[in-house]
Design a protein around this nucleic acid. Structure first.
Lengths: 303, 303
DNA sequence: GTCTGCCATAAGAAATACTTGCATCTATGG
DNA sequence: CCATAGATGCAAGTATTTCTTATGGCAGAC
């Protein structure tokens, strides 16, 4: 049974005549006549009795009308819900971000989104990029704010989240930041003495980048501490227990008074971006979040 | 929003991929792809995210799916109800009949209908033809069993319920019956003495027919009693208070032992039929009732 | 009586939907 | 590492459905 014909029948039943329904539907009377007849043929019995002054519903017509009203109501509701989502009067968007982003550019973006669209529910979970990407892939989150070191570019697996090879995920660039050498405030270490230092590593991928850069510089770092919490790391550094490399976002999120940042090209830059499932950029709430993230990133990564 | 596309979307959502939905719907994958895309264009946002191993619903898709399920459920319910009506497992039919028919052929017909189709509710109201026809016209009843005298044929008004001019109502012939002279059992009245008798008239139309027939015979009947109840009339006749003309159905419904029926061509025959609104003969319950009425009439009017 | 409003029918036109064929992409298995 | 299977997208032509136009019949109102 064609639901469009059911709705046409509803117009006929409510308007009281085929002609009136045709006017209501902005079509012609024969069109209504034909479709109604087709519906009656499907039903196997008349739905209306045609009189000279309009129509009367048969019992079948009366019963069909109640269902038709239900269908029309649900269709209308569906339209309203979709319109609400499209206009950002409703909806939900779930974000996963790595800690230092979650502490800096993400709050700005989420606040801006919440201000502009109070009806949209925003959720945020903190996680390191690999888990974050998994969450997005599995549909547990809509957007992940992740970073990528030049090292892990394009290995084909996609799990490393390089901008140009994010697998089935799409990459939205947010900016890039220098990874800088961080030492104790009163330290006098020179560039040539780095290989003799004790190092503090961050998250596994950060540790990998640190080691790779040291290799490039020609030494193997001695890593004695490991924490992905930049506050912990800075406290260790401030107490002279080791040195480390930290990206700018981490330093902007928290700057321990007892540390010093040394300009050093040794650790290069890392790229920060948002990833989402392909196609999700057209979901209004997701798109809105991505835009806010980009906007916040412009100031967060301003040099 | 095209409800057919909503149902197509439902198939996609439930089957998990466009291809699977296409198989389910016995169509091709591009057809599904195109329709889904059109729906998404209308919605203004993606409803599914297309992956290599099938699709995932977006939030919009999830919300639309619940409404689509509702719509499908109501559509299915509508189909079930209509099928029930078509197969006479459900439904209702309302009959109006004049008294002597209501006492003879109608009970047979209603009982047969109830036996064959227990799910169909039958209702019956007794009324004289003019009211009965009004009830059918107004939709208060589906079928009326009425009679028609040759007198009131084709006056164009349609209100007189002649077989060939029932106005907007359709006439189904059930039979015809002689209108016979009824006198007291021991009466010895001869054909030439009729004009000197006291007459008992029935319903208004019957009275009209009686008077017209007497005029044809060349006299004006002296009518002293009037009742549309054939039991009352027969009792009056039996007690010698007057004579009357009664149709066969009335005599078959009740035969007072104190009366005698005289063969007399004076009052001719009257036609009995069922009337219904045009088109209603295709309503299953109505059609079934009409058929049972015709069947019962065949025996009721057998000479 | 004529007029008006309503519905049915038929045939051609228009819009819509579908099919076919090919290209691409991603997991999966050898 | 390559081949395969299964998924989607795209494009063009074909079919089908649907709508429009034109006409006629019928019943009720004036």
């Amino acid at each position: 049974m064609d639901p469009r014909r059911v709705l046409l029948f509803r117009s006929v039943a409510r308007s009281g005549s085929l002609s009136a329904a045709a006017r209501e539907l902005a079509t012609t009377q024969p069109a209504v006549s034909q479709q109604l007849r087709a519906l009656e043929r499907e039903a196997g019995m008349p739905l209306v009795l045609r009189g000279a002054r309009g129509i009367t519903l048969t019992e079948a017509g009366q019963r069909l009308l109640t269902q038709a009203d239900n269908i029309a109501a649900h269709l209308h509701m569906a339209g309203e819900e979709l319109a609400g989502l499209a206009q950002l009067r409703a909806g939900r968007v779930r974000l996963v971000a790595f800690p230092s982003a979650a502490a800096t550019l993400v709050p700005d973006a989420l606040a801006a989104l919440a201000d502009d669209h109070p009806g949209v529910a925003v959720e945020m979970v903190e996680a390191e990029p690999p888990e974050a990407a998994v969450a997005v892939r599995q549909g547990a989150a809509d957007v992940a704010v992740v970073f990528s070191y030049p090292d892990d570019a394009a290995d084909g697996s996609g799990s490393m989240l390089a901008p140009d090879d994010a697998g089935d995920l799409a990459w939205v660039p947010l900016g890039d930041e220098a990874v800088q050498l961080v030492v104790a405030r009163e330290s006098t270490i020179g560039p040539s003495e780095l290989h003799r230092q004790t190092w503090i590593a961050g998250c596994p991928r950060c540790r990998g980048h640190l080691v790779a850069c040291c290799h490039t510089a020609g030494f193997e770092p001695r890593i004695s501490f490991e924490s992905d919490d930049y506050v912990v790391v800075q406290n260790l550094v401030a107490r002279g227990l080791g040195i480390t490399a930290l990206p700018q976002l981490a330093l902007r999120a928290f700057g321990h008074p007892g540390i010093a940042v040394r300009e050093s090209g040794l650790f290069g830059r890392r790229t920060v971006g948002a990833v989402h499932r392909a196609g999700a950029e057209h979901v209004p709430a997701t798109r809105a979040l991505l835009e806010r993230l980009q906007r916040s990133a412009r100031t967060a990564f301003a040099r």
